[in-house]
């Protein structure tokens, strides 16, 4: 078992780097807030970043359990379908989509 001092050192490193990566860009951007480029990017970015997160999360699920690829794709379709058909209630859509995946993975 690793020593406690090693574990603490890891925790300190992780905390410092993670916080710095989250905080420093804000300090830099504050100086650029009036820049038209930064403003336009902040309008364009969110939907694209969400799409990238969705694709990489799906890919993570598939690479962890390659034989569930079809189930994962089906569950994504069910999630999106539920969301568009039943008034965009996130909890309902995420709940039903996840249930479909869990049932398929555990049943077959």
């Amino acid at each position: 078992m690793p020593s406690t001092s090693y574990l603490i050192a890891v925790l300190v490193i992780v905390f410092t780097i993670t916080l710095a990566l989250r905080a420093i860009p804000f300090a830099v951007l504050r100086m650029l807030r009036t820049s038209a480029i930064v403003r336009q990017l902040s309008v364009w970015m969110p939907v694209g970043i969400l799409a990238i997160l969705a694709v990489t999360a799906l890919r993570g699920t598939i690479t962890a359990e390659p034989h569930t690829t079809l189930y994962a794709l089906l569950a994504v379709a069910v999630t999106a379908g539920t969301h568009l058909a039943f008034g965009r209630r996130s909890i309902l859509s995420v709940g039903i989509g996840t249930t479909v995946y869990v049932v398929l993975v555990n049943a077959f």
């Binding site: 999360a57 799906l58 699920t61 994962a72 996130s90």
Partner: peptide
């Protein structure tokens, strides 16, 4: 998988 479903919904 819930994470994957969440990001899908939020993209929509």
């Amino acid at each position: 998988f819930a994470l994957c479903a969440l990001f899908t919904v939020l993209t929509l």
